[in-house]
Amino acid sequence: MEQGTVKWFNAEKGSGFIERENGDDVFVHFSAIQGDGFKSLDEGQAVTFDVEEGQRGPQAANVQKA
């Protein structure tokens, strides 16, 4: 798993970007967020995640709040 920080997340659209510790920013969709309840992330929040190849390039998967 990688570690990173939420660069921004739009709760209305359900997507945003995570700033990786090593590498380019990666797209995140709300469906990749693990946990119960409303799936959203806050700017500056620390997260851990896997990276998968999506239709438009790398994207975060199995996102967990650190």
Rank of each mutant, 00 (worst) to 15 (best):
N62M: 04
E2C: 14
S15F: 15
W8V: 04
E53I: 14
G35T: 09
G23D: 07
M1S: 14
M1I: 11
G4H: 01
V51Y: 05
T48S: 10
K39H: 05
G37P: 06
A61G: 08
H29G: 04
A61M: 11
Q3K: 15
E53V: 13
F49Q: 02
G54P: 02
V51Q: 05
K39E: 05
Q55P: 15
F49K: 03
A32F: 03
R56H: 13
G37D: 06
G37K: 03
A66V: 15
V51S: 04
I18R: 00
Q3H: 15
F30R: 09
V47K: 01
Q55S: 12
V47G: 00
V51C: 06
E52M: 13
F30H: 08
K13G: 07
L41Y: 01
Q59P: 02
E19V: 14
G4I: 00
G4W: 00
V26R: 01
M1W: 09
G16K: 00
V26Q: 01
F27L: 04
V47E: 02
S15Q: 15
F38Y: 11
D25T: 11
K7M: 00
K13F: 09
F38R: 06
K39Y: 04
E43W: 14
G37Y: 06
F38G: 05
D24W: 08
F9V: 05
D42V: 15
Q64D: 05
F17L: 07
P58F: 09
E12H: 12
N10V: 02
G37Q: 06
L41G: 04
F27P: 01
K7L: 02
I33H: 00
F27N: 03
S40I: 09
A60V: 02
A61R: 13
F17K: 03
V28F: 12
S31Y: 03
I18Y: 02
K7T: 04
I18G: 01
G37N: 07
F9R: 02
A61T: 13
F30E: 07
I33S: 04
L41M: 04
A61P: 01
G16C: 05
G16H: 00
Q64S: 10
K7W: 00
D36M: 11
N10R: 00
Q3S: 13
F38M: 07
V63T: 00
A60N: 01
E53G: 07
G4K: 00
G14S: 02
L41D: 03
G44C: 10
W8N: 06
I33M: 04
A66C: 12
D36N: 11
E21P: 12
W8K: 05
F49I: 01
E19R: 15
V47P: 02
D50E: 14
V51G: 00
N22R: 10
T5C: 15
D42G: 11
G35R: 00
V51E: 04
W8C: 13
K13Q: 10
A46M: 12
F49M: 04
G57F: 08
G23V: 03
G57D: 01
G4Q: 01
Q64V: 12
F17P: 01
S31K: 06
P58S: 07
Q55K: 14
E43L: 12
N62E: 02
V47C: 04
K13N: 10
D42F: 15
A61C: 11
E52C: 14
M1R: 15
Q45C: 09
S40R: 08
A11S: 11
N22K: 10
R20D: 05
M1T: 13
M1Y: 11
D36A: 12
V28C: 07
N62L: 05
Q55F: 13
D42E: 15
H29L: 05
V28Q: 02
V6L: 04
I33V: 07
I33C: 06
T48K: 09
G35M: 12
K13A: 10
K13S: 11
G37T: 06
A32D: 10
P58M: 11
A66Y: 10
V6N: 04
E52Q: 12
E19L: 13
F49E: 00
K39F: 06
Q55Y: 13
E21T: 12
D25A: 08
Q3T: 13
E2G: 07
F9Y: 09
W8A: 03
Q59F: 12
G16T: 00
V6Y: 00
G35Y: 07
D25R: 09
S40D: 05
R20L: 06
K13I: 13
A46C: 15
G23C: 05
N62Q: 05
I33A: 04
D36K: 12
G57K: 04
V28M: 05
G14Q: 03
S31M: 05
Q3C: 15
V6P: 04
Q34H: 10
N62V: 02
F49R: 02
R56V: 08
Q3R: 15
D36G: 11
A32Y: 03
G37F: 06
